[in-house]
Amino acid sequence: MVIDLDRCTGCGACVIACAVENNVPPAHEGTTPRTGLTWMRVVRVDDGRSFPDTRSVFVPLMCQQCDHHTPCVSVCPQNAVEYDEETGIVTQVPVRCLGCRYCMTACPYHARYFNWWDPEWPAGMEQTLNPDVSTRMRGVAEKCNFCHGRLQAARAKAAAGSRPLAPDDYQPACVEACPTEAIVFGDLNDPRSTVSAAASSPDTFRLLEHLGTGPKVRYRSRSAAVRESLTRNSVSSEKEQVHG
């Protein structure tokens, strides 16, 4: 997945589409941004310059689908986080989850969310739940899985047509919902795919690349200031603070 930050207006359509697709319940009373359930959220980041040159960039943030050193997979004591070798997608198994939240402390992207409350829908709204995705219960962790329900549906469809699953057979809900087509999704291993082309562009970067987690979500921006503000580590930010 490659996200073009220059195109993101921060409208939130992806966040809403994600919640609808994955049967994420509405906020319980008393929920704050720190206890919310948002598999996908859009964070506004200032580029660090001072007024009036300052600009913000909206960063859609979801599970970065780390590669080899997936921090959450290795720490789960009961294999409730799975890494799919075929697709490279990291999946949470809520019914096996104990709710110890070790995976959440392990995730540097803060892309994992805990069900602090029992999910509750206003009366009648359970009819609007997506039949392809199970609801979760209080006390378990959950996160983005690149719309596993859609992947399964696409697999079933491919199997019914007796053909292998093609990378373009499905698109996650956020990709579909983005009004400015800022998100490109596909098979990064396929050099001919659009996503590979986007990922190989020189203005592409990953979040916290130094940690070596190998995230499969890339971001891009033509603005060097934006790239700098999203990839800077504490070394450079410290300099900034010294300069005031």
Binding site: G12, V15, I16, P26, A27, T38, R41, V42, P122
Partner: peptide
């Protein structure tokens, strides 16, 4: 109700 995702739950 789900608008809470971009309001209370994320502050967008």
């Amino acid at each position: 109700t789900l608008m809470s995702k971009v309001r209370d739950e994320s502050g967008l």
